[in-house]
Structure formats: structure tokens, C-alpha cells
Amino acid sequence: MKYVLMFCDTPALYDEVDPADAKATYQEVFDWFGEHHAAGRIADGGAELQPVTTATTVKSGGDGPVVVDGPFSEAKEVVGGFTVVDVPDLDAALAMARTWPPLKYPGVSVEVRPSVDHSGDM
């Protein structure tokens, strides 16, 4: 089954983390991908996103789409990246999410959502 892992954090977080520590975590993230890729669990590497300050949102409006500065929601937590994994069940996906290295920092979370399976569609 395919799941999308959405890696979320708070924009303020990386101002607070010591740069050496951040670098080490980045290496851990790299290793995390390496390990799961080798095990055949990564269906699509996904993407790491630029900071939320770079986000532009197109919203529906009465007179057609409107372009606005900023992310789609006012939430404190923002999506910082995502990857698609292919594992047998939710427990396996949760086991991967649980070991996401940045979870040691406050405010970090990983949302796990099954992706829609279109293989049975006509």
C-alpha cells in the first residue's frame, strides 16, 4: 500500500537549532532515506520544500482564482517536504515515520496518509 509521509515543522524551529546540530540531523535524514530506499520502501523520493516564506497560494475567489502571498493555511505547523512509501500496511508506514530523525525537535510531526489507489479504475 502507498502512503504519503508529510514532514511538518514550525518555521521558527531552524532559527533555534544549533547549526552543527542541524547539519548532523541532515546527515541522519540522508541516512534514513538511504536505509529505506535500499529496503525498497521508497516509491517516490518526493521533495524537500524551500522555507514557507517562499510560498505563494492560488485560492478560489468569486471572480476566479486569486494569487496571495504565503501558505494555504494559517497553521503554525507547515509542510516542509514529503515522500511516497510503499509498505504492506499502516503499521509499517508508522514505523518509518516514528524514526524520522527531526522528531527529536519540538513541533516536528509526520502526517501519514494513504494515497488513493487508481489501479482498479477504468
Binding site: Y3, P88, D91
Partner: peptide, 13 residues
């Protein structure tokens, strides 16, 4: 839909 397994959890869980 979310693929919650109706099985015994892994030993570590």
C-alpha cells in the same frame, strides 16, 4: 482505507 492491519503488532510495539 488507511490499511490498519488486523494482526498482532510487531514485537517492538
Amino acid at each position: 482505507d488507511a490499511g490498519i492491519p488486523l494482526t498482532m503488532p510487531a514485537p517492538e510495539d
